[in-house]
Design a protein around this nucleic acid. Structure first.
Lengths: 350, 350
DNA sequence: TATCGATAGAACATCGTTGTAAAGGCGACA
DNA sequence: TGTCGCCTTTACAACGATGTTCTATCGATA
């Protein structure tokens, strides 16, 4: 029912191919004809059929952004920037969620969602090297966040997690805290992000000559608020009294702060808390949360750019390791709370 | 390069169409042949080319979920449920953001993203009736959330905003608060959601015989945290001292609570706060936030179902008004705070 | 004026799939 | 044994777009 090239061609009195040439901006169409065709295009309100075009050309202009869960603020914010960056290239983004299921992640990279996608940006949680090696090497793939083996032929875009964890820890040390714990270790799973962050923490503690107490390494199942709260309760019920907690993401930190409030423990007076991701909420929570802020727009832009290069390349290029900057945003949760009643600075608008 | 029906047919020694029949589960293929074909399918790891299929059938299995911003928790949670509900129907969801731009919203409904989509679920912010009337009536459309004119030939799925606002207000009245304000009025824009919620508030106040003071109607530009904070600061700087604030979404409420903390005003002792949307954060904030909780999984399911019915119908059915349940979740921000030091109940896991 | 070259436009095949219609095989009945 | 009819399978066209090849037209030059 919608107009086709054929209809436009009939209206303008030219061949189908000439209309196609006009639509695609090819040179070599006489001005007079071009104008006639353009008028017909406008009159019929022609819209190309993308399925037909992509069947013919092999390009769909569609890329997938795959995250564990859309309702985790970090991924939602990241997705927002990826959609924006992809839009600038004329791409449309299809967002999918894996719920952290390894099978679904493997599916995403293993089969080119039947030829519908030009490429995939994946934020894996559970994906292991094996699944990546089994993947279809024809699907341009960029990993955003979690590191997997660099041998897998996919670019990897992330911040330097070790350096970021060190920065967070050094900040707490500089504030005079010694009994520093972490929330977010995941010994059970083989995932790399928590491992790298934990290593950064240990490095900083070791450099400062402060011992790490294993009892202050809080284990979690996943990185959600309730896991952060549960880890804090477990730690305190075991009799531990940390002076500071470095949480491996902001959700864990908010859960931890909530649990501390439930126990009547003051933040930051009794326990300083630092998070990771700098979710927007962290600028508004009570107390506001000190956090590692990855440059999300830049991460998204780099991922989209890397994907574009892979899509356009004839031969799959070698896997690259691409790094984005981060910064530590110091807020109330790790500093001495300002006097109650004083009007604080308005949190920086993001 | 990937195998086509043609390749499978050659491998199995049958015609292309027979393979197609097997792939699509049509009856009337002899068992022996079917098994031979299935084996060939498995050996070649055949995946149908969706572009070709959809060019031929006119169905793509792709629907769009269009929201203002993915990083607003309410929309992110909703999107999560929509993706899940659509997945059960075998659909893939393409998530897009309008940033609240009326032109982009109009574009979404005005042109069938060149024939790529089977349908659209739209959470509009700024869309007006005019744009809806101009839309392409061929694109199955379901509106999720904001109400627009029912004449526009699109189904509308939402909770009863007036009743929800009344429930929130009555809860504050029942707690003995009288000087109740709202945060989230948007007189400038013509959007309906804030208008309906404001009306529900006025209705409840009027029913209770409590006067509404215009100075306590907080205007905002958009529904973000910083707007909630700014509205509170403006209200207090004008010398107002409300006993309670009904915020039109949770982001506004979190911003408001932050602003109250900056001013040394206690929540809920001095000011009770109620939000709307029941974002996950609201179960963990300090204080936890009382909020209207729309049944999001149900909203998503109803929207997907309504869309499916529209897609399958030959004639566009009449526009329907579909309602989902909500409930008021009472938490710390509107009740007397429990004694500091006591261990509170663990927030209900979602 | 005749020939050549360059350029604009058209005809055709093709991408991978599925609907339609026709062909093929088989058993049953007369 | 011949014919009819049913059921399975095949051949063909079509969805809408684009790359390739070929033809027609025009102006310029000898």
């Amino acid at each position: 029912m919608p107009p086709r090239l054929k209809d436009v061609a009939a209206a303008a009195g030219v061949s189908i191919k000439t209309v196609s040439n006009v639509v695609n901006g090819y040179p070599g169409v006489r001005r007079e004809l071009r104008e006639r065709v353009e008028q017909a295009l406008a009159e019929l309100d022609y819209q190309p059929n993308l399925n037909a075009r992509s069947l013919r050309t092999g390009r769909s202009g569609l890329v997938a952004m795959v995250v564990p869960r859309l309702d985790e603020p970090y991924f939602a914010e990241l997705a927002r920037w990826v959609v924006a960056a992809a839009g600038e290239r004329g791409w449309t983004v299809l967002v999918d969620q894996t719920e952290g299921d390894p099978q679904r992640e493997a599916f995403v990279v293993g089969t080119n969602r039947p030829r519908l996608l030009d490429g995939v940006i994946l934020s894996p949680l559970a994906l292991d090297d094996q699944a990546l090696l089994n993947r279809d090497p024809k699907v341009p793939l960029v990993l955003l966040g979690e590191r997997v083996s660099p041998a897998a032929g996919a670019d990897h875009v992330a911040i330097d997690n070790n350096a970021a964890a060190r920065a967070a820890t050094e900040h707490l040390l500089a504030a005079g805290r010694r009994a520093i714990g972490v929330i977010g270790s995941q010994r059970a799973q083989g995932w790399t992000t928590p491992r790298v962050r934990l290593q950064g923490f240990r490095d900083a503690m070791s450099d400062a000559g402060v011992p790490v107490r294993d009892e202050l390494i809080g284990e979690v199942g996943v990185f959600h608020r309730q896991d952060g709260a549960a880890a804090v309760h477990a730690m305190f019920e075991a009799g531990e009294r940390p002076e500071a907690l470095f949480c491996f993401n902001d959700l864990l930190a908010h859960g931890a702060i909530r649990a501390l409030a439930d126990r009547g423990v003051r933040v930051p007076e009794d326990v300083a808390v630092v998070g990771f991701d700098d979710d927007e909420q962290s600028s508004f929570s009570v107390p506001t949360l000190t956090s590692i802020a990855p440059d999300k727009p830049r991460l998204a832009q780099l991922a989209v750019q890397a994907l574009a290069e892979r899509i356009e390349a004839d031969e799959p290029p070698a896997a690259r390791e691409i790094s984005a900057p981060f910064e530590l945003r110091v807020r109330e949760s790790s500093t001495v709370r300002r006097t109650v009643g004083a009007r604080g600075a308005v949190p920086a608008a993001e």
